[in-house]
Design a protein around this nucleic acid. Structure first.
Lengths: 175, 175
DNA sequence: TATTGTTATACTCTATAACTATA
DNA sequence: TATAGTTATAGAGTATAACAATA
């Protein structure tokens, strides 16, 4: 019979001092070792923890230029695909059309990107980086690379390739 | 001289039809291949995409029992560490004390967990699963395992271990 | 009928400051 | 002086529905 959570809860309700552990009370702080159990073997949990740590470092690294991860990805994709539409951009980055509007307003306000009429389809706009936007993107990319090196500094090039490939497989298998 | 974003933007502003690509206009939908550029080599981006896909599947799988990822992790940790305090729980899972309050209120309302006075420190509560909470957690864990198998179905056991180990190393190196 | 861009809106998650009661 | 739990609040990020213009 497996040691289920139901059985553990049963034991706990009979024997409440199971909470105390080995250490006993410290002078001014309870420093108890908390057991995460099987959580460390759940991809979702481990991926989430890594993602939070990576984004925190990215945000801190690009804070001086006031660029968030989503803004960086949008500028990068516009730079790589000049003239694409908002719908195409949204599909590529899995950002809903409605949520792109504010982002692009902000990027236009900062003269990093611009919307121009799309010849042949008056519903859409063609998106471009401004000259200034292109120059700034190069700066952002340098900072992003610095962040990237830090995030992967304990991985060999092959390990990094492996990590990216495994993650991509997991994503594709769920799509 | 590298082909920087600045130079690309310069070309684009001189030659706007760079946007058109090879395909030409389709009958009723523009289906242009969008190039994500170096984004696919950024750990942050790839980890983020995988995390979103995994969480979507987790949420869908546990929707019938109305349990979100954070709730599952909280129940699991309480079950594994009966009698721990909210502060300890928050530190273990990197959830701010303030944000735990609502979650625990909800779990108590649903009779899955309970707060009891902590003997020896009247500021704190000791957290336990109820008997019902323990039984339900076993059901949640079964669903979570089903999700886990689906998320990792294209990975060998060794590949999964590798993935988790690499992610943990990335997180630790940024801490 | 379908798609594009837009507005409005809501819900989740996360973060901070301030309060109280205890240590 | 520091910590625990709480409240209130604000900011992201994400989701949906509806609308006008256009295809």
């Amino acid at each position: 019979m497996p040691d289920t959570a139901a059985r553990a809860a049963e034991r706990a309700s009979l024997k409440d001092d199971a909470a105390e552990g080995a250490g006993g009370a410290q002078p001014h702080q309870r420093r108890r070792k908390i057991d995460l159990g099987v959580l460390d073997e759940h991809v979702g949990y481990v991926v989430r923890r890594a993602q939070i740590a990576i984004f925190k470092d990215f945000i801190r690294t690009l804070a001086p230029v006031d660029i968030r991860p989503a803004q960086f990805s949008v500028l990068l994709v516009i730079g790589q695909n000049p003239g694409l539409t908002q719908a195409e951009l949204g599909r590529a980055l899995a950002i809903k059309r409605a949520n792109l509007v504010g982002m692009l307003n902000e990027l236009e306000r900062r003269k990093l990107a611009r919307r121009t009429p799309l010849p042949g389809d008056r519903r859409s706009y063609a998106l471009y980086l401004t000259r200034h936007g292109g120059e700034m993107l190069d700066r952002y990319a340098k900072l992003a690379l610095e962040h990237e090196k830090r995030a992967c500094r304990t991985l060999s090039p092959e390990e990094k390739r492996t990590l990216l490939a495994l993650l991509a497989r997991v994503e594709r298998s769920l799509a």
